[in-house]
C-alpha cells in the first residue's frame, strides 16, 4: 500500500480517498466501545421480568418502571442536583486555582520548580482507601460532613494535580512574547494575562475542565463516606438503589442513563472545543 499507515496530515489537509479500511476499523472500535453501554441502557427500559431473561433480549416492550422507581420513589433528582453543583463548583475552583499554579510552573524559572511540580503530582498518588478515615476526621472537626461545600473542597484538592500538570504543558506552548508585548503596551500583568494568554488558553482549559468534570461527577468512595442524607451525590445513590440482595439490572440501566446523560451531552456540545482545545499548542513557534 502506497498510502502510509501513519499519515501525518494536518487538520487542513485535503480529504484522503479510499479510506474504507479506516472506516472499518473505526466502526469496529465504536461498536466495541458502544455496545456494552447501549446494552445496559436498553436494560434500563425493561421491566424486572425482561431484565432477568435467560438469553440476551434485544426486543422487548419498553417500560419506565425503573425510572419511576429511581425518580419518584427514591427521589434521585436531589442527588442529581447535588452532583451538578459539586462537580461544576469543584471543576471551576480546581481549574481556576490550578491555572495560576500551572502558569507559574510554566513561565518562571525558580529554584525547586521541578520539586514543587512533582510534589503536586504526588498528591494524586495516595490510594483513597488509605485516606478515608483521616479525611473523615478532618471533615468532622471542620463541620464539613454531609455538606456540599466539603465535597467541593475535597474534589478541588483531588483534581488540582491533574489540572496543574495538564495546563503547565499548554502554557509552555504559548510564547512568552505575546504577553510581554501587551505589557509593553502598558497593561498590567493581570490585564495581559486576561486579554492575551487566557483567550489563547481557553480551549485547553475547557478540555481540562471536561476531564475534571468527569472525574468529579463519577467519584464514589469519598462521596459514600462523607455524605449522608443532605449532600449525597449520584454515584453512591445509584449504587445503593441498584444493588440490593442482588443487582437489579434494570434499575442500574436507568441509573446509567441518568448519570451519563449530562456528561454525554456535555461532550457532544463541547467536543469540537475539546479537541481543538487539546491541540491548543498550534500557536506555531
Amino acid at each position: 500500500m502506497k498510502q502510509p499507515t501513519y499519515n501525518m496530515e494536518s487538520p487542513a489537509a485535503p480529504l484522503v480517498q479510499r479510506n474504507w479500511w479506516v472506516y472499518l476499523v473505526l466502526i469496529l472500535v465504536c461498536l466495541v466501545n458502544f455496545v456494552p453501554y447501549l446494552w445496559v441502557v436498553m436494560t434500563g427500559f425493561m421491566d424486572g421480568a425482561s431484565a432477568s431473561s435467560a438469553t440476551p433480549a434485544w426486543f422487548f416492550t419498553p417500560s419506565l418502571e425503573a425510572f419511576h422507581y429511581l425518580i419518584v420513589e427514591k427521589g434521585i433528582m436531589k442527588n442529581f442536583f447535588n452532583s451538578v453543583i459539586v462537580s461544576l463548583a469543584s471543576t471551576f475552583f480546581s481549574v481556576t486555582i490550578g491555572m495560576f499554579c500551572a502558569y507559574a510552573l510554566a513561565r518562571y524559572d525558580f529554584t525547586g520548580r521541578d520539586d514543587v511540580s512533582f510534589w503536586v503530582l504526588t498528591n494524586r498518588m495516595m490510594p483513597p482507601v488509605a485516606v478515608l478515615i483521616p479525611i473523615f476526621v478532618t471533615f468532622q472537626t471542620a463541620g464539613l460532613l454531609d455538606t456540599l461545600a466539603g465535597l467541593v473542597l475535597l474534589y478541588t484538592a483531588m483534581q488540582l494535580p491533574f489540572v496543574v500538570w495538564m495546563l503547565t504543558g499548554y502554557f509552555r506552548d504559548i510564547p512568552r512574547r505575546y504577553e510581554e508585548s501587551a505589557m509593553v503596551d502598558g497593561d498590567t500583568w493581570f490585564a495581559a494575562f486576561r486579554k492575551v494568554t487566557l483567550p489563547l488558553m481557553m480551549p485547553s482549559i475547557t478540555a481540562t475542565s471536561i476531564f475534571v468534570m468527569i472525574l468529579s461527577w463519577n467519584e464514589f468512595a469519598f462521596a459514600t463516606f462523607l455524605t449522608s442524607t443532605q449532600a449525597k451525590t449520584m454515584p453512591p445513590a445509584i449504587m445503593a438503589y441498584s444493588i440490593g440482595a442482588d443487582i437489579r439490572w434494570n434499575v442500574l440501566g436507568a441509573a446509567v442513563v441518568l448519570i451519563t446523560a449530562p456528561l454525554i451531552l456535555f461532550v457532544l456540545l463541547l467536543q469540537r472545543q475539546l479537541i481543538s482545545g487539546l491541540s491548543q499548542g498550534v500557536v506555531r513557534k
Binding site: I133, S228, G244
Partner: peptide
C-alpha cells in the same frame, strides 16, 4: 424517619466509621 441507604458492600465500613467517630449523624 429519614433513611440513608448505603450499598451493602460499604455498609459495614460506613457504620463503623460513623460510630467510632461518634458523629451522632444517625
Amino acid at each position: 424517619v429519614v433513611v440513608d441507604e448505603v450499598p451493602f458492600e460499604n455498609y459495614r465500613q460506613k457504620s463503623l466509621v460513623e460510630m467510632q467517630q461518634g458523629t451522632g449523624t444517625y
